[in-house]
């Protein structure tokens, strides 16, 4: 598998480590149901068969955390961007 890194360009799978679903927002620790929200944040996943957003770390490269849009059925990769950028979008 080849994964495009927004900083380094296309690189081999073995340079990366996989974490899991991207786009999860860490709950507000002050919320009244914070414990429940944290439970969902840590444990509940969509587990989509199809196009997903995933977090990868370019471990043996620039060490950027990136968000990769990938189809888990075909392994087709549509895009990758810095996680920090996608989060800024998310919180706008």
């Amino acid at each position: 598998m080849r994964i495009p890194c927004p900083f380094c360009g296309e690189r081999d799978l073995q340079e990366y480590s996989f974490l899991g679903e991207a786009g999860l927002k860490r709950p507000d620790p002050e919320a009244s149901d914070a414990q429940k929200q944290f439970h969902d944040y840590v444990h509940i996943r969509k587990n989509t068969a199809g196009t997903t957003s995933e977090l990868w770390l370019h471990t043996y490269g620039c060490r950027s955390w990136i968000v990769v849009q990938r189809n888990t059925l075909t392994h087709e990769i549509f895009s990758s961007e810095f996680a920090s950028d996608t989060l800024k979008e998310l919180t706008k």
């Binding site: 974490l19 950027s64 955390w65 810095f82 996680a83 989060l87």
Partner: peptide
């Protein structure tokens, strides 16, 4: 190291 990078880049950029 990976955890700190995650916290910085993903949680609190």
């Amino acid at each position: 190291m990976a955890h700190l990078e995650f916290c910085h880049q993903v949680l609190w950029p």
